[in-house]
């Protein structure tokens, strides 16, 4: 028995209408139905944080929600972060400049976790940064450069 639902979801300012199976994860909806493959899927059980998106402005793991639950809600993915195709968001600039990524697989999840964090806490301590990213795993950097990148991003965003 296939349980189908027609949903309307606004992603990065564009409203999409799709008919999906109830069991479709939000992460798969974003990637497979909308083709927004910037949202990465790592563990699919809520540990790695790679699939983090903003759901009504708050970071959530998109592998731990069903697409049908997003009906009528607003989502922002990493594709919605930069202001226009020629400019990066300060967070993205900072990750680039401070070598906050190597392979880049975890990066979209980090960026989407950090955007609301830095907006709410523009001048975080290192301890606060570490707690903020505790739900995102990175297997390349050892986190040190990510923390430097967050400090740099905070500085850029304060300006």
């Amino acid at each position: 028995m296939t349980d189908l639902h027609t949903i309307r979801v606004t992603v990065n300012g564009t409203t999409y209408e799709r008919t999906v199976e109830a069991r479709m994860l939000l992460s798969d909806f974003i990637r497979h139905e909308l083709g927004l493959t910037g949202t990465h899927v790592g563990c699919e059980h809520g540990v790695c944080g790679a699939c983090t998106v903003l759901f009504d402005g708050q970071p959530v793991r998109s592998c731990l929600m069903f697409a049908v639950q997003a009906d009528g809600h607003e989502i922002m993915t990493v594709e919605g972060l930069a202001p226009d195709p020629d400019h990066l968001h300060p967070l993205q600039e900072a990750f680039w400049e401070a070598h906050g990524l190597q392979c880049g697989f975890c990066t979209p999840g980090f960026l989407m976790t950090l955007k609301p964090f830095l907006e709410e806490n523009p001048n975080p301590t290192e301890e606060e940064i570490r707690l903020a990213i505790s739900g995102n795993l990175c297997r390349c950097t050892g986190y040190q450069h990510i923390i430097e990148a967050v400090k740099l991003a905070a500085e850029k965003m304060r300006k």
């Binding site: 944080g49 970071p59 793991r61 731990l64 976790t113 903020a132 739900g135």
Partner: peptide, 12 residues
């Protein structure tokens, strides 16, 4: 509360 999982989890 801060001991419960991570910020993304606590949002849901």
């Amino acid at each position: 509360m801060p001991h419960i999982a991570h910020p993304q989890i606590r949002n849901r």
